[in-house]
Amino acid sequence: MKRLLAIELQKIWKNRASKVLTIGYFVILSFIALIAAIKFDIGIFKFHLAEMGIFNFPYIWHFNTFIAAFLKIFLAVIIVSMMANEYSYGTLKQNLIDGMSKKELILSKFLTIVLFAGISTVFVFIMSLLLGFGFSSYTEIGIVFSDLEYLLAYFVKLLGFFSLCLFLGILIKRSAFALGSLFIWFIFEMITYGISLNQIKNTALVDKVYDFFPLMSMWNLIKEPITRLSSVKNLQEAVGENSIKDYDVHFSSLLIVLVWTAIFVYSSYIIIKKRDL
């Protein structure tokens, strides 16, 4: 397993574009901390994000994982191109000739994905911990380490998304087209969701069905945290909108995404196995 990871990491790390993107990803990820510095002073109206409670434990776990998840597209580019490059350089063929089995090939890519998702999760964990201790109103251990399931959800979200990218890279062989089709699929889910909501009045039913779509299921892992913020809530109540929303991470959503992950990885293997390279 170490051997497979070493092979894959050498391929990625020696590639300047991938290296820059990886470093860029983590640099931008740490920019989340800069949200703390957002401050507006317009006369009597004072607006300071860090003091609005976004960095309060345990809310910070929810907020940071939600924001950080948007940046996954950076790593997705690396994953798609790491697969598409193997085709265009002809090295996929050469690796097999050199004695890598097709199973090992997929496994090495999958391990890389797990590693990326893992490192990103650990990074977000440490960053949130530091930010939280800097700005949170509550720092009791019991509160600090509550709601950690958001980190698990974050990990699974990345894992599922990267597996989809891997699958598209293997299926389509060209990074630009693979990313393009990822985008088209995203639009497709969006549009059909919108149409269904319009046509079928039963919102709950449509939501249930779309919970099973790959991108929608990943999106549903971590609900948007903005409306959960106490100050925003107060505002809503003032306007008269009283929503009782469920912000928890559900086991069923985790399971759906994990099943998609398995489907994507296994289909990747089948494609490589059946295809004449």
Partner: peptide, 15 residues
């Protein structure tokens, strides 16, 4: 078995 074989096919494939 291929680990005990040395092979090049058509054109050289490297990174």
């Amino acid at each position: 078995a291929l680990k005990k074989v040395g092979a090049i096919i058509e054109r050289p494939n490297f990174y």
